[in-house]
Write a protein that binds this DNA or RNA. Structure first.
Lengths: 190, 190
DNA sequence: ATTATCTATAGATCTATAGATAATGC
DNA sequence: ATTATCTATAGATCTATAGATAATGC
């Protein structure tokens, strides 16, 4: 029954990844610890070896999801093969594929509105994460100075988040695609 | 124990109003039927006389909350004492008071991201409600034609929703107020 | 010997229903 | 007689823990 330390660490990471997907798909309250462990191919008893509590898992999963976005964006910015990282990021962010697959898309669209109801640690992770994302976005914006670029990044990110939230809430109607299209044109995504 | 039909109808409406507040404060899964009835000064047994199920309550509460926004906006538009209804609406929407009191603010900020996970009836209510809100907002926008005004309304509403979601997720940090301020200036609210 | 994971379960929820109660409305 | 609401509870969750098991790592 016992597995190697390496395997145990891999299991912990698998649980984190599974949680990241299922929290985005079903919300923090929409997936229980036992079902989550089963989805990762494990059983509930092992959970508390890796995590102090479900709250601890939520915090770790959110930190991981924010790091994933940051690393993806930084990778795009650094990649010489990607000519215009801002276009690439915005096109993906506002795609119908992202709208229809919340489990793979930006966590802010699905989980940000639940954050204020949870523990301070989680709020801190979201606060810090939002700031970092906006700073990265700001480096890709055109503007006269840093403050101007930051403001543009804030406007752009708010628009993106709001558009995906509303596009999902109206999915199936013509309005849903209009919302994504308008967000693209407002934020200069072609 | 039995009350008059008038009183029973008033009780039903009180439960709806209480649900509207608590769903916005805690999410659909954050408040149970028994606690909700207690908050309304009643007990759980009476709930199923007024509602078929918790899903039914969610649908009715969301419809009521959307109607409330619509009626408030239409009232502002029709009120001769309000010089610029768009300014009035936007200033309230993006206020810190709204950020800090989700139980009294626009349901889209708190509940829209949960909608895709629930029953089709709820999705339909949100779809229809979003379209109606955008149409009302469009009448207050400046633009060359109907399509132009509708696009501006879509951009504005997405921006408002995204800004409040992010402002709440970052509440307590300086960024939170910056997000609200940027949304105001982007959507021409002074 | 240590420990990662397993099965089983305690105790606290949650939705929904059953049957009793007492006031309304014919 | 009817019925809106009450108390009590069934049955299904959910988080977390206890103790057993069997493989790792000294």
């Amino acid at each position: 029954m016992r597995v190697s330390r390496k395997q145990a660490e891999e299991n912990r990471e698998l649980v984190l990844k599974t949680a990241g997907k299922l929290f985005r798909e079903r919300g923090f309250n929409g997936i229980g610890v036992a079902d989550l462990m089963r989805a990762a191919g494990l059983t509930v008893g092992g959970f508390y070896n890796s995590f102090d509590s479900k709250d601890d898992l939520m915090a770790q999963a959110c930190q991981m999801l924010i790091d994933d976005i940051n690393n993806k964006w930084l990778g795009h910015i650094a990649d010489p093969k990607i000519e215009d990282p801002y276009q690439r990021i915005g096109r993906t962010y506002l795609s119908k594929a992202n709208r229809d697959n919340p489990g793979q898309a930006c966590m802010f669209n699905t989980l940000a509105s639940e954050v204020p109801r949870h523990q301070p640690e989680l709020k801190q992770i979201f606060s810090d994460g939002t700031l970092t994302l906006i700073e990265h976005l700001a480096t890709m914006m055109q503007g006269e100075n840093d403050a101007d670029r930051k403001n543009k990044a804030i406007a752009t990110f708010s628009q993106w988040v709001g558009a995906q939230v509303l596009a999902r809430a109206t999915a199936g109607s013509a309005l849903s695609e209009e919302i994504l299209d308008v967000a693209k044109s407002t934020t200069n995504i072609t």
